[in-house]
């Protein structure tokens, strides 16, 4: 009896190890390829480097736990961003009280002394309503097409196009108004 069990164990455990090795490599390459984009996306939705890092770590850990459910590597990016957005939603469920957006007030107060376009546009992006901000970030950071964003956010493609259009227009007009107001400072 011993003979049979030991033989069976040996062969099955070696495939388990091979499998684990493959799984590990797959996971490491996902982390290497996507963690920077995930971080940037997280940073822009929560605007806090530490929270962003936590979010990405939680996302990756969750991804590791369910990596077997990812069948096609082509959908890895969409899959990871979905996990990240879900993790972020969880964070809000946990911290309902912290929902007051202090940053918005700071932005209003700082508006007059910003002379740098990049800094200004960063504030404007941060202050966009999330309906507009999310599609914009998914397009510009993650590089998703309008169709992919539509699947990701469960919207139809035309809605995504409209939101992208409005987000960009909003940023553009904001920027123009600001530059006109601070025209002297820029010159």
């Amino acid at each position: 009896m011993n003979f049979f069990t030991s033989k069976r164990n040996k062969s099955s455990s070696s495939t388990v190890y091979k499998d684990m090795d493959r799984k590990q490599k797959r996971y490491e390459s996902l982390v290497n390829v996507y963690s920077a984009d995930l971080y940037r996306y997280a940073f822009w939705i929560c605007r806090d480097p530490e929270v962003a890092q936590d979010l990405v770590q939680e996302t990756c850990l969750r991804a590791w736990k369910s990596i077997d459910s990812l069948l096609d590597d082509k959908s890895a990016k969409a899959w990871l961003f979905t996990i990240l957005r879900r993790e972020n939603a969880r964070r809000f469920e946990r911290k309902q009280l912290a929902l007051v957006d202090i940053d918005d007030y700071e932005i209003a107060a700082e508006e007059n002394n910003s002379h740098y376009d990049k800094e200004l546009i960063q504030q404007k992006i941060a202050a966009l309503p999330s309906d507009y901000k999310e599609p914009l970030l998914l397009q510009l950071i993650a590089g998703f097409t309008a169709e992919e964003i539509a699947t990701q956010l469960d919207l139809n493609k035309n809605t995504v196009l409209t939101r992208l259009f409005r987000a960009k227009n909003l940023l553009k007009t904001n920027l123009k108004v600001e530059i006109n107001n601070n025209g002297e400072a820029h010159g």
Partner: peptide
């Protein structure tokens, strides 16, 4: 816009992720 969104990613981010895993 893309350039403006390029914030620095912590250098040890991938290491930390793999460590945690």
């Amino acid at each position: 816009l893309k350039d403006s969104l390029q914030v620095d990613v912590p250098k040890d981010l991938t290491d930390k992720i793999l460590l945690e895993q």
